[in-house]
Design a protein around this nucleic acid. Structure first.
Lengths: 131, 131
DNA sequence: CCGTATCCGGAGCGATACTG
DNA sequence: CAGTATCGCTCCGGATACGG
């Protein structure tokens, strides 16, 4: 592993039967904060503190981890300006911007079907729910 | 919770600031087996054992959990034929079939960018890797 | 301001054994 | 065949404290 417990690298044990690469994207899309952060970055260049305000509930630790993983995958650039107090800017790369299209598709589908899903879920829980 | 440790219900503590519903879809897309199972079900009606053969590496337990969650969200129907030996058939619902479009988008984007991502990752790891 | 180090609870998942 | 019940490990993510 890299350093301490700030595991950015990941090192999953894949078997890669033709879905290799898909897994990585699923991991980004599936985790708790990435989508929110990318959506905010889609609005333009953002600083660390700014992002923390824009994404309600995220801790410093998780914002750092989320940004590092995005940076590692080449979806975000991190620019450090050597001033005091420190100033760091984050921006989507070309690849990162293209991912917002995917996120849009995800959001659109979710909104379009959330009613059906919620209802199905309610019905299921009623059937199974402690009779 | 529902029964034993076969947690299907979930009961997450959300705050639901306009992304309500997206989270649910992220959870399905993000977990380890759902996408594989849905892809197989896209080919038509499948039985339990059949799915387990088609999705290499999945355990009985995880296949059950994955199917139950899909069923709960109204993405899959479960049909039990009262015969011996037992015969249970799974099939995508209309909503489930529409989700294959989303999965396709996910797969397409992943394949289109996996090269760039892999390279970015390699470069990042080389820079940061235990100097 | 922008992080990193540490501790810790809980979810996700795998392995295994047992039923109708 | 098609599940359910248990156990145990691993990793994610939250809380907190400290550093450049």
């Amino acid at each position: 592993m890299s350093v301490g417990h700030t595991g950015v690298t990941g090192e999953a044990g894949l078997d890669c039967s033709e879905d290799c690469g898909v897994r990585d994207v699923q991991d980004r899309l599936g985790d708790k904060w990435t989508v929110h952060v990318v959506v905010e970055l889609a609005g333009g260049v953002r600083r660390f503190r700014e992002l923390q305000r824009l994404v309600p509930g995220i801790s410093q630790r998780m914002l750092t981890l989320t940004l590092r993983r995005l940076e590692r995958d080449g979806l975000v650039t991190r620019t450090v300006h050597p001033v005091v107090p420190p100033q760091v800017e984050y921006e989507l790369t070309e690849t990162g911007r293209s991912m917002t299209g995917l996120i849009k598709a995800l959001a659109d589908w979710s909104l379009a079907h959330r009613g059906v899903i919620a209802e199905a879920r309610r019905a299921y829980d009623e059937r199974q729910g402690t009779p």
